[in-house]
Computed example of a mutant assay.
Amino acid sequence: MDLLGSADPVAEGDLVCSAKGCRAPAAWGLLWNNPKIHTPQRRKVWLACDTHRPTLEEFLGRRDYWKQTVPVADLARFDPDARP
């Protein structure tokens, strides 16, 4: 069984929503960290379209992981390797 083969391909450089099954262009970067495994300053990023932003923020917030949401264009300020 090929678990990776079931995902829709994404072109290099395309930023798409992180919600399962969504291929919409990402408009938001949800910055988060898991305090049990990440240092306080570390920020991981999930991408979100306008539709899935509230759901993904709620999911991260219930776990006390969510830190901040920023427009995709501003991600480079938080991660020099991010692709706006």
Rank of each mutant, 00 (worst) to 15 (best):
D64T: 02
I37P: 08
A7H: 13
R43M: 13
C22T: 01
Q68P: 02
D74R: 12
E58C: 11
H52G: 03
L4G: 11
P9L: 10
L15K: 00
D14M: 03
R43A: 10
R23E: 01
A27L: 10
D2S: 09
V72G: 01
N34R: 14
A82M: 03
V70T: 09
A26K: 05
F59D: 05
K20C: 15
R62N: 06
A48W: 01
K36W: 09
V70Q: 07
A26C: 06
H38A: 12
L4H: 09
R63Q: 12
A19Y: 09
D50Q: 10
S18Y: 02
G21H: 09
R83Q: 11
W46M: 06
G21K: 06
A73N: 11
S18V: 00
V72K: 02
K67P: 02
D81M: 02
D79P: 01
R62H: 08
D8M: 08
A11P: 10
G61Q: 13
D14E: 06
L31G: 09
V72C: 02
L56R: 02
T39E: 14
K67V: 14
D74S: 14
P80K: 04
T55S: 03
P84T: 10
M1V: 10
D64I: 00
V72N: 00
W28L: 10
P54C: 02
P25N: 04
R42W: 14
L31H: 07
D74L: 07
C17W: 00
T39N: 15
S6P: 03
R83P: 05
T69S: 11
D81Y: 03
A76E: 06
A73C: 11
T55I: 04
L30W: 05
T39Y: 15
Y65N: 03
A7M: 13
D64F: 00
K44V: 11
L3H: 09
G21F: 06
K36H: 13
P80F: 03
A19I: 07
D8V: 05
T51R: 14
A48H: 01
P40R: 15
T39A: 14
G61P: 12
W28K: 06
L75F: 07
R77A: 14
D79Y: 01
A76H: 09
P40V: 13
L3N: 08
W46K: 06
L47D: 01
R23H: 02
V70I: 10
V10T: 08
R42Q: 12
F59G: 05
N33F: 07
A76I: 07
V16P: 03
G21D: 14
A7P: 09
N34V: 15
D8Q: 09
L60I: 08
W32E: 12
A11K: 13
D14V: 04
A48S: 07
D74C: 08
R77L: 15
A27P: 11
G5S: 12
T39I: 15
A11E: 15
N34D: 15
A82V: 04
R77I: 11
A26H: 04
A82K: 01
N34K: 13
N34A: 14
L47I: 03
P9G: 11
P25L: 01
R53G: 05
P54T: 01
P40Y: 14
P84V: 07
R23G: 01
V72E: 02
T69G: 06
N34Y: 12
P35M: 07
G13H: 01
Q41M: 07
L3P: 08
G13V: 00
R63K: 12
P35Q: 12
D79L: 02
A19H: 09
H38D: 15
A7T: 12
A73Y: 10
L15Y: 00
S6G: 14
K36C: 06
Q41K: 11
